[in-house]
Amino acid sequence: MDFISILSIFVLACFVGYYVVWSVTPALHTPLMAVTNAISSVIIVGALIAAAAAGVPAAKWLGLIGVVLASVNIFGGFAVTERMLAMYKKKERPAKEGGKS
């Protein structure tokens, strides 16, 4: 891909991000931060490429450390988001007083 195609994807993704994030309910802003943390660790792709390539040991070890760090984030980020989201419940138990938004 040439630079302009990549730039186009980037700019459009910024707009998508803008609208998607504004639609996130404020009650879920903490899970939003946790999950953005997890997905920004997609940088693991770069670390994997470095770790996988043969030939330059320094790059390989930097890549491996990068893989460790990004994995902490991926597993930790998704797991803690899942844990938080599981706690958000609607009112259901006392069905006696209904009708207040």
Partner: peptide, 13 residues
């Protein structure tokens, strides 16, 4: 692409 889209999303967020 995955990294660019994600980066833009997280940056915007």
């Amino acid at each position: 692409t995955a990294m660019i889209i994600t980066g833009a999303l997280v940056g915007a967020s």
